[in-house]
Design a protein around this nucleic acid. Sequence first.
DNA 1: GGCCAGGGTAGAA
DNA 2: TTCTACCATGGC
Length: 278
Amino acid sequence: MEIIKEKNKITILSADSFDVRDIFNCGQIFRYNIFDTYSRVLSSNHCADIIEENGKNIIICDDSDYFYNFFDLDTDYSKIKKVININPLMDSAINHGQGIRILNNDLYEIIISFIISSNNNIGRIKKSVEFISRNLGVKMGAYYSFPTQKILADADEAFFKAAGCGYRSRFLVYTARQIFCNDICNQLKSLDTPSATKQLLKLMGVGAKVADCILLFGLHKTDVFPVDVWIKRVYSQNFGGKLKEAKAIREFFINLFGQYSGYAQQYLFYYKRDIKDI
DNA sequence: GGCCAGGGTAGAA
DNA sequence: TTCTACCATGGC
């Protein structure tokens, strides 16, 4: 992958394994917009605009070091794709989502966002996260930052309900205070996957599936496999599996894909959700 | 009007 | 430890 990095600009010269539609629509991030001529993505207090032209992607941003890491530009996706391409279904899924990259998003924003995601749909999750940012974030010119831990720790249940978080509002109040008061995010960053999982499961509103999403999208632990309703479908309908419990299905896929489980999960989730009749 | 959505919690057994 | 009722809400 040929990349030119400047102070406020990153130019990706090849369109292989980089497509903003695949990256943003695959369910790993909720603060983005895809317009006709460009796309905009927000992460913590950062903003980037991406322009596609002649097979190139030009990222205009406030901090190219942040977004070089954010877009995971040091990772060789062609190598990963070869390893996980174990059958015709995976070949189709990888081809469908060829431009996917697993983002290195802000851990705190990911924890809050994925607590909201439980038994919810992506459209509503986007609206809630946008409401929270617009009302408690810092105005950064044309956009709002995600709220700081301190600000969100002061939010009450009525605020999260106004954001459309429903019954999850109680969990969010409790966990936002827990994270801020005990510096949970910095603790998590130093842990391996099993230890981080154990700590995440102590947070109110975080169960096995949300913990896996936080590990994958917030801590870039790729040896996990979040099992949601779409993964259950692709497992039973396309892998011919007979297991029922999410925990067992998770183990099945981790045995298949090992350290690349998280990548494989994203290609499968995006494929199954886009093309339901496979 | 019932079903679904990137599930989790709390209480019962 | 596992099982189950219940949880808000908008879109279809």
